[in-house]
């Protein structure tokens, strides 16, 4: 459906199986893949990614990041926050809060900022996409920090959409629901939990491919008038209430 063969997509942030799945869909659509990942990421995740150019850098350092990006040209940027943790509010500590906000908020902002500056230098507009989760919209059990950090990020994304519109840069967010990926492992990996996801109106958990397809749409000319939106890809999960017990009953100690 998408022909993005004229694009290079910069995937920037933490390595994750979600981001790898998204990169694979872009690759299928013909895009070149450039991955700039944080040096603290787990390098084993690289095997999940498609062929492309891979650069390790420090997302803590906007100057280093800018000098890295100065050598490359790209049209679409996918920001990949990578912090996800199931932990109850009562068990969350200062370190959890710092990690959530450093990775999902600060690093993501630096990444988007550096990439936006490079897009402006290139002078031909562009697209910035933030990968997020529907837990930013609907709190679920023990996602207080990931939800709030991504909610903060989504506000920045919409503000960035306003700021960057003058440069022809569109900024959008793709919010994933339950996926068959590592974030959902606590749900999917335990006997009896989410085996039959009847609480998802479309009747199945999503795939990283479904998120990637939404990203491709928003990166394509089909979405040329869409900016500042948060697009959920969740099979309708957040639409309504479930009478069932949460499949995730928590880790409170």
């Amino acid at each position: 459906m998408f022909d993005l063969s004229d694009q290079t997509v910069l995937m920037i942030g933490e390595l994750s199986d979600l981001a790898a799945g998204v990169a694979a869909v872009f690759k299928e659509a013909g895009a070149e893949i450039l991955v700039v990942y944080n040096s603290t990421s787990d390098p084993n995740l690289l095997r999940l990614y498609p062929d492309g150019t891979y650069l390790e850098t420090s997302l803590y350092d906007p100057i280093e990041l800018a000098s890295t990006l100065a050598n490359y040209t790209f049209q679409t940027v996918v920001i990949s926050p990578g912090w996800f943790q199931h932990r109850s509010f009562l068990d969350s500590n200062a370190s959890d809060i710092e990690n959530a906000y450093r990775i999902n908020f600060e690093h993501a902002i630096y990444s988007a900022q550096s990439a936006a500056k490079r897009l402006i230098e290139q002078g031909e507009g562009g697209v910035i996409l933030f990968l997020s989760s529907v837990v930013s919209k609907m709190p679920t059990v023990e996602t207080n920090l990931v939800g709030s950090s991504l909610a903060s990020l989504e506000v920045i994304a919409t503000m960035a959409a306003v700021d960057l519109a003058q440069y022809g840069i569109r900024v959008n967010v793709v919010a994933a629901g339950w996926l068959e990926n590592s974030w959902a492992e606590p749900l999917l990996g335990v006997e009896g939990r989410m085996k039959e996801p009847t609480d998802i109106p479309l009747g199945k958990v999503g795939s990283t491919k479904s998120v990637g397809q939404a990203c491709c749409f928003l990166a394509s000319p089909m979405a040329e008038y869409i900016t500042g939106v948060v697009l959920p890809v969740d099979g309708g999960f957040t639409l309504t209430k479930s009478l069932a017990q949460s499949p995730y009953r928590g880790t409170r100690q």
């Binding site: 609907m138 209430k241 017990q245 949460s246």
Partner: peptide, 9 residues
């Protein structure tokens, strides 16, 4: 709290 989330705790 009904509308906070999909599930209650």
């Amino acid at each position: 709290g009904l509308s906070i989330s999909k599930y209650s705790y």
